[in-house]
Every structure is written in structure tokens, then in C-alpha cells.
Amino acid sequence: MAETGVRVGLFVTCLVDLFRPSVGFAAVKLLEEAGCSVEAPFAQTCCGQPSYNSGDRQSATRIAEKVIETFADYDYVVVPSGSCAGMIRRHYPGLFAEDAEMRARAEALAAKTYELTSFLVGVRGFTRVKARWRKRVTYHDGCSGLRELGVRDEPRTLLASVEGLALSELSGAETCCGFGGSFAVKYPDISDKMVADKVADIAASGAEAVLCGDLGCLLNIAGKLCRLGRAVEARHVAEVLAGMAEELPPIGAPG
């Protein structure tokens, strides 16, 4: 492993931790290939987004304080999720409007926090991976990564370097899949319509696999693909970039 001066704290995210740790290890592998030394501090849990988006600002603030403290000493914080990275980058500072010192710390963390692919391409200049995967894939842009962080070209740049992989763009790639955290559970009928439309677009793309940078969207999309009995695989983009897609079953497939 290349031990360099760049220390990255990996913010694993609660969904990756619980559902698909492989995504976390894929991120570690890519970051190390990009010359970083990676740590995943045990004191992390969740970014606080469930509380924040449900109106429990107080809990969100306390969780944010904890994240700020946990990751204060790293050069960068990298997150394999546009949504959780967006929470830290775009929303943490606003939680401390009344507290100048904490706000400054939140801003410092926000400034060094990146979604995985945008960190690799934008910060590390790492654009060529060593993976190969013979598949026709399509890509769904998670809403937070796309609109809060402006992540769009980076995953495509990296995917273009995967040997054997062909990307066909998804019609409506920028339309929400209907996940939205608790929205999917609170308004299942609406969420269902949205994810059904998404799955129809995926099918129309002719791809064998749909990739995305957010596990939340992927659980939703994979869940609908499974329910409808579609053969399209759903995977986190990091798995493919790290060359793990061959041996790792897709999301929602028997282990």
C-alpha cells in the first residue's frame, strides 16, 4: 500500500455498514489505488440525515457534532454516497447558525468532505481504474450527488476506463427514483410509481446492470427490479470500479 501524506477518513454511511459492506471495501481499495491512506473511525455511525429530514433538527445537530469531532483530524473525508456527503457539505454548517465556533468547524469539515467519485477524479486526478467488466450498463444519478454536489461527469469518467464496459445513458437519469429516505415508507404508492417509472427507463436502456453512487437509491431500485422479476443487476458504482463486480452478487441476489 502506498503510504502517503494524504490521510482519508472514510465515512462509511449506515446503509453501507449494515447492508453492503463490500461497497466500503471497494471505496477503500479505490482510495488506496489513488494514493491515499484510509481509516474508517469506529466512532462514526450515521450522518444524521434521517433526523434532519424528518424535522428533528436537535438530534441532527447532536449527531453532526459527533461526526465533526470524529473526522476533524483527517485531510479529507470521503463518502461512497452523494446523499450523505451532501448532508455534511451542504447542510452541516447551517445547523450551527447560532454557534460561531461550531459553525467554523462544520464549515471546515464541509470543505474537505467529498463524494467518492468526485474525490477520486477532482481531488486526486485519478481517472483510470484497473477493473474490467464485460457488461452493458446504465447510470442513475442520485439526486443529492447531482444537484447538491454537482457530481455527474466523475462516475462516467471513471466508468469509461473499465475494460469491456459500455455505458448507455438512462432516459430520465436525473429524475428521482422515489427513495427519499422515509418518503419511501410514508408514501409507498407514490414511491412505487416513481421507482416503477425508473425501472421502466432502465429496462428501455437495454442495460444488463444499473449503477448508482448511492446505496439508498440502489436498495429501492434493486427492490423493485426483484419484485418485478427483472434480470437487470443493481450495483454501487464503486464495486465495479474496484473490480469486485465479477465475484460479488448484485444487490438483492442470493449470497
Binding site: V12, D17, L18, R20, P21, P188, L219, K224, G252, G255
Partner: peptide
């Protein structure tokens, strides 16, 4: 407790171990 989710789609099963367990 997940009827809102599973009414309209499946819930993918986890891989079995948490990231932090494996990392440790």
C-alpha cells in the same frame, strides 16, 4: 415493521456482516 417498503418492492438482504466488524 417495513410494510410501507415491502408493499411495493422487495428489501434486498444484507451481506451478513457490518463494515465496521469486518474492518476491525
Amino acid at each position: 415493521f417495513h410494510s410501507g417498503w415491502t408493499a411495493v418492492r422487495d428489501l434486498p438482504a444484507p451481506e451478513g456482516r457490518t463494515f465496521h466488524h469486518l474492518w476491525a
